[in-house]
Design a protein around this nucleic acid. Sequence first.
RNA 1: GCCGAGGUGGCGGAAUUGGCAUACGCGUCGGUCUCAAAAACCGAUGAGGGCAACCUCAUGCGGGUUCAAGUCCCGCCCUCGGCACCA
Length: 817
Amino acid sequence: MDYSKKIDKKWQARWDKEKVFNAKTQGDRRPKYYCLVMFPYPSSELHVGHARNYVIGDAVSRYKRMQGFNVLSPIGWDAFGLPAENQAIKHKIHPREWTLKNIQRIKEQLKSWGIGYDWPREIATCQPDYYKWTQDIFLKLYSKGLAYRKEAQVNWCDSCKTVLANEQVVAGKCERCSSEVIQKDLRQWFFKITDYAQRLLDDLSLLGDWPERVKLMQENWIGKSVGVEINFPVQDSKTILNCFTTRIDTIFGATFLGLSWEHPAIAELIKDSPNKKEIELFIEKVRNQPQSARLIDSFQKQGVFTGKFALNPLNGKKTPVWIANYILPGYGTGAIMCVPAHDTRDFEFAVQYKLDIVEVIRAKDKSGAPKTVSEVYEGEGIMVNSGQFNGLSSEQGKEKISDYLQENKIGKRAVNYKLRDWLVSRQRYWGAPIPIIYCESCGEVAVPDKDLPVVLPEVKEFLPTGQSPLTYIDKFIKTKCPKCGKAARRETDTMDTFVDSSWYYLRYISPQEKKTAFVSSDVNNWLPVDQYIGGVEHAILHLMYSRFINKFLMDQGLIDFPEPFKKLFTQGMIVKDGNKMSKSKGNVVAPDYIIDKYGADIMRLYILFMGPPEKDAEWQDEGLGGCFRFIQRALKLVDMLAECSQNSQSQPNVQEKELLRKIHSTIKEVTRDLEGNFQFNTAVSRVMELVNQVYKGINQATLGKEVLGQAVKTVFLLLSPFTPHISEEVNQILGNKESIFKSSWPLVNEEYLKEEEVEIAVLVNGKVRDKLKIDVSWSKQEVEKKALSLEKIKNALQEKAPKKTIYIDRKIVNIVT
RNA sequence: GCCGAGGUGGCGGAAUUGGCAUACGCGUCGGUCUCAAAAACCGAUGAGGGCAACCUCAUGCGGGUUCAAGUCCCGCCCUCGGCACCA
């Protein structure tokens, strides 16, 4: 038989008609399995790199279906947001049009690859019946004080003309357009994700089936530090400087205090200073420095003395207060105690401005104050020059001093996180409007539930100006206050796309639901997602936001599971010529020509076969040819089977026995590959081996119809998650009426795996010298005796007497002299 | 700088977790078919040496443990990813 595109179309239509992929969320007795792929962002058509995600997801869901699970595999569109809007502007069309066009195109692509989705559950985040509920979740957060507006220094991309979340700034540049991100003081909307920092950290331990590296990335991003806050009173002033430190054991070495340039106490400290002008100039200079300037190695530590001294609360020592450019305003209290002897950053600063350096922690092999940066000891040790705490270890010192601070009310134990609140407002058009109204007399008012959704109005101009385009739509802005009925105006910012995608996996369960975002009881039955599949680029952004929203919804009693995604698989990128595929590099591999030349199954097979799915892989067109030849070879067996007239004997002959063993060992290994961490590449190669062995038997004309039939059937059953169209066709040719995906995954018959005779390696002093066929019933002594009688072994031994022999059952025998 | 992943033929990559390194595929070479080419099929293919049977050396480098190491331990080198003055 030949494989042609007709076969693809034929089976795609059949699957649709027979609703093979439409799950019943209620009343199905089979165990549920929710297989979710990260939904596509429709800003352009898909290439083979994208295809990997969907092909893997499809292979998993088809496999699980054959294993007897009630599988849910939905799809939708992450359809709001900057990339679509930017593309639309570039092509001079409305973002909606652009997006819907792409959705149409991608849908065709996914269908032509035979990816089996539950299409009636399709959702798009840009549709009012979806974003109504995004707004609803916003208001739920708002009512709990977890969505709030504040004036803050925020990341601003001047090319995209909008603010960005911390997570969307990569090395000081905009994640989307790579232009320099600057800091602006703006009034913006935030989600209080920091309230969940500890739980987001703790619950990583519930995620046993997540890749370790993703959990580590989240852990680092949350960045928990345990320490103390300590008060330094300033001389001749009412000001008290509160510093956070994780190394309170070094307090006696604090020779100066450092303030960030935004510290609120600065104005008070310098108000009478003769150098006021100079200090203000310095602050202005630092404030205007771009973020990326701090990332380069040559970044110069600079500072200015305030003229004030603070008193060390432990020894009363006078400590100069400086303002320094290396102290971050957004972390801790924005003020630190600086210990140059035990912190390289403080050391560099101290050297530059000739400040004191006092050793207070003695390392095993070092002593004395450091003279160069490399001598700075940052580890723990024994406390010295530390008054009553001398002789304690750092660990004991931390405890003792923390107690001392609490008792004397000059400080307290404290915890800090690097995680910042999630900035969710955007000054752009293509997003869900933030459902808030401003009233002169009532202030900030939530849009009542009955008025949702706040529909995104049609506009003609959506070019970014730094103001949301909605600002110019009078009809949209002008409204009435829901509380007092007076004239009021609407919030004009839209929400970050990551808000849309932080809950979509809940909507799939009841996508048409009109009364609520999701039906709790159904969601509780179907979630958490059993298998989530997507790119590692979402390790922090989407996956952290979703975990946060999930926890929030649990706290509201709306769902009963703490984590949304039980198991996570992050597939590697497909690269071409060593580079990520991109239009600008001109190295995009579009799937159309592959489908045209070879058909969908060959592309699917190659994508799965090209390498371990979690690793990056280099696309090579030649690899497709290999998969094509393999399928041709396998299909030829179907014809050979039809023509085979050789009836099997009642007892299988030697080759048939071997083939039966191979069939069942292949089932066993392929199943193990799929059950483990989706080792599709080895699964495919094992089926290739099986086919190779069938050919050996056929060439020797030793295979009867019965065994050959079993082999052919097994080959295509095992391949069916990977090459579904071909497998369906063969399944039909073999006389089955039902879809192969309604049949069950083959089972191993252990009987066939039993061997009477095996070949083992015979080693002399660890080196293989010969092979030996043994009967599995033989004892060690018998094997040893046989091995010693081999010519090659005698030669290798050269008359030396064996000292001992190691026999590993059915594997090797090693003779040691 | 800190954290993580990895380094195996000409290439993509296997190796049941300490037990026959290089499965499977690509590529290359040789053969069959053909006027010829392509396709297809069959065979060979880690490196070096030898007429040969065979021998020696090979999993980034250097040590170690073991009857046995790609796999375990110690010390380096290199590549890729994340974070980046977080006190």
